Simulated assay, not measured.
Amino acid sequence: MTSEQPEQDSRSFMHYAALKTAIVRGETQLVKELLGNQSMQALEKGYLLDLAKLNNNGTIIALLEAVPVTA
């Protein structure tokens, strides 16, 4: 493990937290920017999709469904 690992994990966690907040608030453009061309794990994607479905935001749901899943 390198000294950069904790900083990278912290950024990843903050990015995920920002994504969750944007989904809950219905901030479609910010969700699109935060997703970028990234992939995510199936569990993360499922959780974020559940959040979007609770808000019934079809645009955000479609954005999340298009995200590729990593192993």
Rank of each mutant, 00 (worst) to 15 (best):
M1R: 08
T2S: 12
T2L: 13
T2N: 12
T2W: 05
S3P: 13
S3R: 07
E4T: 07
Q5D: 09
Q5S: 03
Q5Y: 11
Q5W: 09
P6S: 07
P6Y: 13
E7I: 13
Q8Y: 08
Q8A: 14
Q8W: 10
D9C: 07
D9Q: 05
D9Y: 07
S10F: 11
S10I: 09
R11P: 07
S12W: 08
M14Y: 10
M14A: 15
M14C: 10
H15A: 13
Y16A: 14
A17L: 15
A18S: 12
A18I: 05
A18Y: 06
L19F: 03
K20C: 15
K20R: 13
K20T: 12
T21E: 10
T21F: 06
A22M: 08
I23M: 04
I23G: 00
V24R: 10
V24L: 11
R25S: 08
R25C: 06
G26D: 09
G26W: 03
E27D: 14
E27P: 06
E27Y: 02
T28A: 15
Q29Y: 01
Q29F: 08
Q29E: 04
Q29M: 02
L30K: 12
L30T: 14
V31R: 03
V31A: 09
K32V: 00
E33F: 01
L34F: 01
L35D: 02
L35G: 00
L35S: 00
N37S: 09
Q38C: 04
S39I: 04
M40Q: 03
M40R: 02
Q41G: 14
A42P: 04
L43R: 12
L43M: 11
E44K: 14
E44T: 13
K45A: 04
G46K: 05
G46E: 01
G46Y: 07
G46S: 06
L48F: 06
L49F: 09
L49S: 04
L49Y: 00
L49R: 02
D50Y: 09
D50A: 13
A52I: 03
A52T: 01
N55V: 12
N55E: 14
N56I: 10
N57C: 06
N57E: 08
N57K: 05
N57F: 11
G58A: 14
T59V: 15
T59Q: 14
T59C: 05
T59I: 10
I61Q: 12
I61D: 00
I61F: 14
A62G: 00
L63E: 09
L63D: 03
L63H: 07
L64H: 01
L64S: 10
E65S: 06
E65K: 11
A66F: 03
A66K: 10
A66Y: 01
V67C: 07
V67T: 02
V67W: 02
P68A: 11
P68Y: 04
V69T: 15
V69D: 00
V69F: 03
T70I: 09
A71W: 01
A71M: 02
A71F: 02
A71I: 03
